[in-house]
Nucleic acid binder design. Structure first.
Lengths: 347, 347
DNA sequence: CTGAAAGCGCTAACAC
DNA sequence: GTGTTAGCGCTTTCAG
């Protein structure tokens, strides 16, 4: 009676046929016992399970995928892996997929549509069940690939009227408008906006537009600082200096993200600039650091994890063929008003 | 002349045979032109490239993998996706793999060996080129699977004499000892250690031991606070209170990670506890927030990204069969002494 | 340098 | 409820 170690030594992997022979059944029965146990009699199921365990059988996903033309793989393409915002997204996808035997293929585009395109085309070679991407802007070819694939396509983090299939996000523009309105409500009038990497980071650009709209609506001039490089704590600190150099009377800043805002708050601490008395600071995304700073950071809570979860659920739900059904899901954001912009302390 | 859209409408993917026919060559020549272009004449190469482009051919990775018994897939199993420490690791792997056409399958174990085992066995079904895991402690079956697989196995973040194959990490124990020694050097004598989730987080436990060793070596009593739940900013804040409740005269704390330390520093800010005058605080990992806090956080810089990079390089380098060659690579850590533990300001 | 035939290990479709 | 047959689309021999 061969044991698994012997088979391993033969340099041959245990196949479904080995299991079938051992259990005294056909291979298809093994296949069914593994994929749809309810269609196999309890007795055979038991014998097969025993054979699987004894032989240490591991299913060959390549063979299964080739034959069935589908796999339990879900590529997720994010702009950046290290950015906590996207880590939350991936975590959300993972939350839902984990228990279902699905696996995540991770790709980082670096905010570069060309790299995104390369990732899309590589990933589609896996016959994925679905594919999750951030944003709705792609290269022409990228968009075509997404349109053509059998996989369920989910585009996250924005809302767009011409998304490929499923679009789950929130309105960055509305959130930015609300935040800007909050600053004006609090009485700030010389409100600046600071963004970074906005040629590439589409959503940051949208936030900027939201800010500009509201200021214009109030007849106030916009003060925008836009850095070409990606966001960092250092850059947020730098922005405080640049801001005062350019518009010394600025009384509030809306940062395109919390990383910049965090850098700005720590910079103000170091330089003794009272926040919000001298300068009110707002961020975007609602990272949990925000709640631990002094002062606590006013920010927009984006439903990152929930977007990931719903993306995964959409993919799981949409098994089986059929044309793409378009759907836009608008998740809510939340304006978290905290001490960094509040004129009066509440107590 | 059929164009790609027509083929797509046929609901049939473009295959290598389609490309071959169009280019007027055999399928194997197409295969070679894609995988080993130098073995194909320039003329055919050109025709094949043209056919690929015109038809919009995407290679089917399942078929290729099934046939060749190997894929350009590298599973990476980390304890947690959201933890910035592991995001850096994954980013490092990605840095190196990206250009080589390899792809990352991401798994999160939640610090649970059983879940890690499930991930390992699922991932091995993809005939991965290599597999990257955090830590050297696995379930018995998990370890056996890793030993038996053809894939290059890389274990990260610790050093162990009985790693499966390639082990890239640093000494958590030595780092913890160095940090503890630093605190004693600075003159602190009532030094505590705070860890979280240490039953699961093996490395945190190792750090604790390093701390205890050094204290014992100086004849000082250990003060260890160990929380069962995972680390969070809040927990770090909580620890400050618990610490003073239990050992009111504590003058320094060594936290098992920067997240806890960050929470503690902000807590001290809120409660007006001067750091380091009343309480010195040290962390572990060298997250970049540390450099932006007031006071800046003393911590241990762990070579996270570099571990990821070297893991990927090891996998790329070790193509082709052959028995596993064991190798331990000891990357250096760095003690970053900053204001949160320094007795006197330097100027 | 190029090609023909065989087969990787599984599942779909159809029998029984 | 179970088995048989025929591929899925590549890459690996082995010839030329």
């Amino acid at each position: 009676m061969p044991d698994p170690v012997d088979l391993a030594k033969e340099r041959r992997r245990v196949t479904m046929r080995d299991v079938a022979r051992r259990a005294g059944v056909g291979t298809i029965t093994v296949s069914r016992a593994l994929a749809e146990p309810e269609k196999v009699s309890p007795e055979l199921r038991r014998r097969i399970a025993a054979a699987v365990a004894e032989l240490g059988y591991l299913p060959n996903h390549m063979a299964g995928g080739l034959s069935s033309q589908r796999t339990r793989v879900v590529p997720v393409i994010v702009p950046s892996i290290r950015n906590a915002v996207f880590a939350d997204l991936v975590e959300g996808v993972n939350d839902v997929l984990l228990g279902e035997g699905y696996q995540i293929l991770l790709g980082a585009s670096g905010y570069d549509p060309a790299r995104e395109e390369a990732l899309i085309s590589a990933f589609l070679g896996w016959f994925p069940a679905g594919i999750v991407v951030v944003g709705t802007q792609h290269t022409e070819l990228g968009a075509r690939l997404l349109t053509r694939t059998e996989a369920t396509v989910v585009e996250l983090f924005e809302l767009s009227s011409d998304a490929v299939e499923i679009n789950i996000g929130f309105s960055n523009a509305a959130a930015a408008r609300d935040m800007t309105a909050h600053l004006l409500d609090e009485g700030y009038r010389r409100v600046a906006f600071v963004g970074a990497f906005m040629e590439r980071d589409v959503r940051a650009g949208v936030r900027r537009s939201g800010y500009e709209e509201v200021l214009a609506g109030h007849g106030l001039p916009a003060r925008v600082l836009s850095y070409p490089q990606p966001s960092s704590y250092e850059l947020g600190g730098q922005a405080v200096q640049d801001l005062f150099a350019r518009w010394p009377d600025t009384d509030a800043v809306f940062f395109a993200n919390d990383v910049l805002a965090f850098g700005a708050i720590t910079e103000c601490q170091k330089r003794g600039i009272p926040v919000p008395q001298r300068l009110a600071i707002a961020g975007f995304n609602g990272l949990d650091v925000g709640a631990r700073m002094t002062p606590e950071l006013t920010t927009v809570l984006s439903p990152r994890r929930e977007m990931g979860r719903q993306a995964a659920r959409a993919i799981l739900g949409r098994r089986g063929p059929g044309a793409k059904r378009r759907e836009v899901i608008d998740l809510k954001y939340e304006i978290l008003v905290r001490a960094s912009t509040r004129r009066r302390r509440e107590d």
